[in-house]
Amino acid sequence: MGDQPQVVTGLFQTWFSEHLFCPLTGVWFWLAVLASILAFCGVLAVLQKLNSAARRRLTVVCTFLAGLFYSLDFFCPERWDPVQGYVQPLGNFLLVLSGFSIGLGIINLVMVHGRRLARGGGGAINSVAFFLGFLGMLVFGLLAQPVEDGATRVSFATGVFEVLFRGLLNSLDATTFALLGFFIVTAAYRAFRIRTVEAGLMTVVAFLVMLGQVPAGQALTAWIPEDHALALLRIENIQNWLLTVPNTAAARGILFGSAVGGFALSLRVWLSLEQGSYFREM
């Protein structure tokens, strides 16, 4: 299907592909798994042995190398990019790594709720709910089959999973989002105070934008013909001007500031200049 994009082979990439990152089967596959586990445990043991200063130095080196990898990929023209061939494999590796991190999350949740359950008391019922929800989703999620559109019969496990996921989780998700409507109204009533001229100006602008976005507001100036010289004063046109001129200028200002701030912070993290700031003053 068409020309494949040309990807430059990374340094030693062919060797890696032929000797290390190649599909294995049978005994070799299991030996590779065992070797990976042993290697992982070995690295972990070495890391545990290191003192705090050595660990920090290692972090500095790793951070710099990772930043250098992506900088090379971004700055080097495609023809001379020495790491281009590794971007995809590294991306896949990082995805797998982040997949494993969910285990950390589960351990954390099980420890917090397990301890509370063992202790008993008022909050224990929440922990029971957590374990029920967690096990229910896990078991029925594994047993469930994909549902075709228009399917009329599904297995028990699929049915339960659909109720838990679509019926409960999705609906609760939408409900929590819908709560925003109530919070916006109460926050506007409680917190929006006109104490200064600027605040007054902001209120006027807010009202104009709110009115300009809904038909009830647009109807207020609908008597001005759209092609009339005074059409500029129609509320939707005022709203449009506010959004496309002053708002755009402000949004760009914030965007520039944030981008520059993010750039400088990235640089500090890459060069590990930020790192010492956490506890230097102690």
Binding site: G257, S258, V260, G261, L265, L273, S277, R280
Partner: peptide, 21 residues
Amino acid sequence: LGEEYYATTALLSREPVLTGS
């Protein structure tokens, strides 16, 4: 707000590296 966010550690610690940045 905005870029002030990235200045937080600099303002908290007043370290030369961060204020210089």
